[in-house]
Simulated assay, not measured.
Amino acid sequence: MFQEMRYRGPSLDELHENYAKQHRIDDAAPFRSTHEVVINAPAERVWALLADPAGWSAFDPAIREVSVAGDGTPAVDTRFTWVNGSAKIASRFAVVEPLREITWTGTAMGSRAAHRHLLTPRQDGTTLLRTEESMAGTLLGLVYNKAKLHAELTRWLDSIKTAVEQS
């Protein structure tokens, strides 16, 4: 437990450039989780939701105050800020591959995270959406844990699934 609380992980720039842009999370981070769902819709509809950060609050009420730099369109290295629950997060897109992957890194309250989303179209017209996230930060374990991260990822994907399937 002491090691988990002391692990800071790579710098945010290193996490962004050498992990997220390389299609990976920090496997040494003390807080990691994955979750996946099958969505009864084509990848185009799933992608449209994920690639519209300003619209995330429409399906996830914990998200608000999203501001994306430039024209608001996700692109590699585009910065965005948002509030998720009580945490204000400063993020940057690392991978934007339409219909395949959208990944960002971010920092909030001294923690650093890499969050990947992988879309896999299936032959039956559905889409497998998989997410994986790593979080690290000194003393993060005092206010956060793996179970909470997993619950948040589950809620996030369930919200996306419901929104896509109802549209």
Rank of each mutant, 00 (worst) to 15 (best):
S67E: 15
I89P: 11
A87L: 13
V37T: 07
A41T: 05
V83Y: 01
S91T: 00
E65I: 00
I25K: 04
R24P: 02
W47F: 06
T73L: 05
I89W: 07
W82D: 07
N84R: 09
W47S: 04
T81L: 00
F80G: 02
K88L: 07
A51G: 08
F80Y: 12
D27A: 11
P53C: 03
G55Y: 01
G85M: 01
L49Y: 04
G85T: 04
T34A: 11
A41L: 05
T73M: 09
A28M: 11
G55C: 03
G72C: 05
Q22Y: 03
T34R: 14
S91G: 12
R92D: 09
T34D: 14
E36L: 04
A75N: 09
P42T: 01
I25E: 10
D60G: 02
P30L: 07
V83S: 12
W82I: 02
D27H: 10
P30W: 12
P30F: 10
T34W: 11
H23I: 00
G70I: 04
I89F: 06
V76P: 11
I89A: 00
R24V: 02
P74Y: 02
S57Q: 14
A28E: 15
T78W: 08
D26E: 07
F80C: 05
T81I: 04
W82R: 10
P42C: 03
G70F: 11
H35A: 06
D60A: 03
S86R: 11
A54Q: 14
I25D: 10
A90Q: 13
R24I: 02
V46A: 07
F80S: 01
R45V: 00
W47L: 04
F80A: 00
A29H: 07
R64K: 15
I89V: 15
F59L: 08
A28I: 00
D71I: 00
F59A: 03
E65C: 03
Q22H: 12
I39Y: 06
R24M: 14
S67Y: 08
A41W: 09
F31T: 00
V68S: 01
S91K: 01
I39L: 00
W82H: 12
R32L: 10
F59I: 02
A75C: 01
E36Q: 15
S67K: 13
V38T: 13
S67F: 09
H23N: 13
V68I: 04
A51S: 15
P30N: 05
A58Y: 07
P42M: 02
R32H: 06
D60Q: 15
H35Y: 15
A41R: 09
H23T: 00
D52R: 10
V83A: 11
A87V: 05
W82Q: 15
A51H: 08
D26N: 06
S67M: 09
E65W: 00
R92N: 05
A48W: 10
Q22M: 13
D27E: 15
F31L: 08
A87N: 11
T78M: 06
A58T: 13
D26C: 01
P30M: 08
P42E: 13
D27S: 10
S86W: 04
A43S: 14
A29K: 08
A87M: 13
D71P: 05
R24L: 08
G85L: 01
F80E: 04
D77R: 06
V46G: 02
V66I: 10
V38M: 08
P61Q: 12
A62C: 05
R79G: 09
A29N: 09
